[in-house]
């Protein structure tokens, strides 16, 4: 098991390095000159070149990559002399657009996205798995039909519609959310109720979209597992249906969900662009969107892209380790 984890860890590090290299190469070939973007219409070539140097963009892409990696580990200085700026480790770069270290910017946005991701994850797992199991147990009956209807609605309704519907016809209509307060940060520690009010609707929006596919997945997995030979063996032993479902069927049927859930959660950590947009939540999704569409804030885009990729890669590692823990066929060769 330890050997397996070490191996997967090394492999993950390599993938992370490759991912960051790829992102750097892509950014190098973007038809946008970030130095040109540092000043407005009044730009003149010498200033652009000076800024290029300050941004560290006057060296080849691979050297930029090395500096970036070094900055991640050891922090980094941007510009020189009296204008010098320091961003402590882990430094994701400096946004001249926002006059702030990218790490600081992300540090503000990430808790929002994280709260959204955790909240909706919890909701959709509980809802999706419960509905799926109930639907499978009462296959063909009313409960199953209702679950199927839920799956249909959930999978066909995109979040930009369900989100707006929830916002307009639930949150605002019943005065559950104050439109002026939307997007203001409520600390979960000092103002748990405000935090809850702010997050519950976007969490429900996301959870509905995900729960539908988890319901379908759980239902089909439970039904499929129920016809496995080892379930018949469990019955032949004399176990009760309850024990068979809990100990034998669900154990086998739900394990694959870990993989999907891990990756879905990691994807959400990168930012839920639409939902954050609708509910005016200042998370990573909105940060990226603004950086891409409005500010051309390349250091921020670079950082959020890398982070989103890193979340998925790390999630893959964690999922594999969890799976090895659950499935002896992976754990013991």
């Amino acid at each position: 098991m330890l050997k397996y984890v070490t191996k997967r860890l090394a492999y993950t590090l390599i993938v992370l390095v490759l991912v960051s290299l790829t992102v750097f190469i892509i950014f190098n070939f973007l038809p946008i000159d970030p130095a040109r973007l540092t000043c407005g219409k009044s730009c003149f070539p010498a200033l652009i070149e000076a800024n290029r140097h300050r941004l560290g963009l006057d060296v080849p892409w691979w050297e930029q990559w090395i500096r970036f990696m070094h900055g991640l580990v050891a922090g980094r200085n941007y510009a020189e002399g009296s204008a010098a700026l320091h961003c402590g480790a882990p430094s994701f770069g400096y946004s001249f657009n926002q006059h702030s270290c990218v790490t600081t910017i992300i540090g503000q946005a990430f808790p929002v996205t994280f709260g959204l991701a955790i909240g909706s994850f919890f909701l959709w797992i509980v809802l999706g798995v419960t509905l799926g199991v109930v639907a499978a147990r009462f296959k063909g009956r009313l409960a199953d039909r209702l679950a199927t209807a839920f799956v249909l609605i959930g999978t066909s309704l995109p979040t930009f519609i369900s989100g707006i519907l929830i916002l307009l016809f639930v949150a605002l209509k019943f005065n559950l959310l104050n439109p002026i307060e939307m997007g203001m940060w409520h600390s979960p520690f000092t103002d748990p109720f405000g935090y809850f009010k702010e997050f519950i609707f976007p969490c429900i929006t996301l959870a509905l979209a995900y729960a539908a596919s988890y319901t379908r997945f759980t239902r089909s997995n439970v039904i499929e597992t129920s016809s496995e030979d080892f379930i018949r063996t469990a019955k032949a032993k004399g176990l009760s249906n309850k024990v068979i479902l809990r100990k034998h069927t669900l154990r086998a049927a739900l394990s694959p969900i870990i993989t999907i859930a891990g990756l879905d959660f990691a994807g959400l950590l990168g930012g839920a662009i639409i939902t954050e947009g609708i509910f005016n939540l200042p998370g990573l999704g909105r940060l990226s969107l603004k950086a891409v569409l409005i500010d051309y804030d390349l250091p921020v885009i670079l950082a959020t892209t890398l982070l989103a990729a890193a979340f998925v890669v790390v999630a893959n590692l964690l999922v594999d380790i969890a799976y090895a823990y659950i499935d002896p066929r992976v754990r013991v060769g």
Binding site: D229, F230, A234, R251, A252, I326
Partner: peptide
């Protein structure tokens, strides 16, 4: 009762 296919008759986990 025991069954035909012992490969799948035991719970893998």
């Amino acid at each position: 009762m025991i069954f035909q296919d012992p490969m799948s008759a035991l719970h893998p986990y």
